[in-house]
Simulated scan of single mutants.
Amino acid sequence: MPNPSRAALIDRLPKAELHLHIEGSLEPELLFALAERNGVAIPFASVEEVRAAYSFFNLQDFLDIYYQGMSVLLHEQDFYDLTWAYLLRADADNVRHVEIFFDPQGHTERGLAFETVLSGIERALKDGEVQLGISYRLIMCFLRHLSEEEAFATLDQAMPYLDRIHGVGLDSSEVGHPPAKFSRVFARARDLGLHVTAHAGEEGPPEYVHQALDLLEVERIDHGNRALEDAALVSRIADEGLTLTVCPLSNLRLCVIKDIADSPVRRMLDLGLKATINSDDPAYFGGYINANFHAVAEALDLTEAEIVKLAENSFTGSFLPLTDQARHLNEIAEAVHG
């Protein structure tokens, strides 16, 4: 039986989302609508057929569908509509701050201008700040299945817009593409004053997490599940207070875990790690941030104190200034006791 008190707490807690791929929030309804609006041929006759196609068994199967879905995004307004639709769902889940990823290489290689992508996403984020009270940071990801030279080219494209971009990340196919492959471009990004984060330890081994820390010098680790296989690595992550952006429903759908009860969230908390809950690619994985909280809370029988800790971690693990973090922590305390 679901615990109604716990569920109500999750719903009212302010949260930050630190691991969200904006292209992965493309719901079937919007994909179908954009295909019609832009005259893009897709192999689906209805929204229902699109939704049925959102079926996969591992990361690569998902990525194949994910990149196919990108094909309907052509104009600045498309990226605005995509981002605004996500922000409305985030607002409904009481998300007060978002740090979203976008994949410029997935669009520029299709002939779109970098500014088209950035401007559409950013315009929606700015509207979300004003109209919904959701602050943001924007993180540009490099696709790890492409070369470091291509990542450098993307960083060069971004140079005129770096005052509008807050960080860089590393995503896409993990196995066979270790963080070490991108050490030079991450060094350049750090020199430019950008925040740095990277996907590591989702399907890749603990060694990839070591490389993300030692070679990329990341400020937080996206996923990080397999770090738990290395006791020394766990101690290091705990000692350094590094944040892990865990995505429970994503882990389940991509068969990183066999059952939601296998989510590493409880174990991470027990080990003193700064775990957070995120939705990753929610249109494909079956739920936005509250759905992830509810699934994990029920499966792991999390206490209310643990749920509050996860919400607090989402702000203290963010790239917000300490004063803003403190304000959000006060709002959490008010939600708990009010």
Rank of each mutant, 00 (worst) to 15 (best):
E217S: 15
L162A: 13
A333P: 02
T154N: 00
D324N: 01
Y288S: 08
A90G: 12
H199A: 02
G120N: 03
E109F: 09
I277Q: 01
I100P: 05
E298N: 10
A295T: 05
D214M: 08
V265R: 12
K309L: 09
F152C: 05
Y86A: 15
N3L: 12
V256P: 06
D214R: 10
H294Q: 15
G317A: 00
A85C: 04
R236D: 01
A333H: 08
C247I: 09
E49L: 04
F32M: 14
G317D: 02
R37Q: 15
A153N: 15
L155N: 01
N38W: 11
D64R: 09
A85T: 11
I260Y: 00
Y80G: 01
P104F: 04
V209E: 14
L132A: 03
N251Q: 13
K126R: 15
M140E: 14
G193E: 00
G120L: 03
D281W: 11
A232L: 11
L170I: 11
I22P: 08
A238T: 12
T154S: 06
D61T: 07
I289V: 15
D93W: 01
K126Q: 15
V265M: 14
L155S: 03
F44D: 00
L112T: 02
E23A: 04
S183T: 03
K309A: 09
V72Y: 03
V168N: 09
A52S: 13
E115S: 15
T108W: 14
A92C: 05
C255T: 15
H328P: 02
P282N: 07
E312R: 08
F319N: 10
Q68K: 13
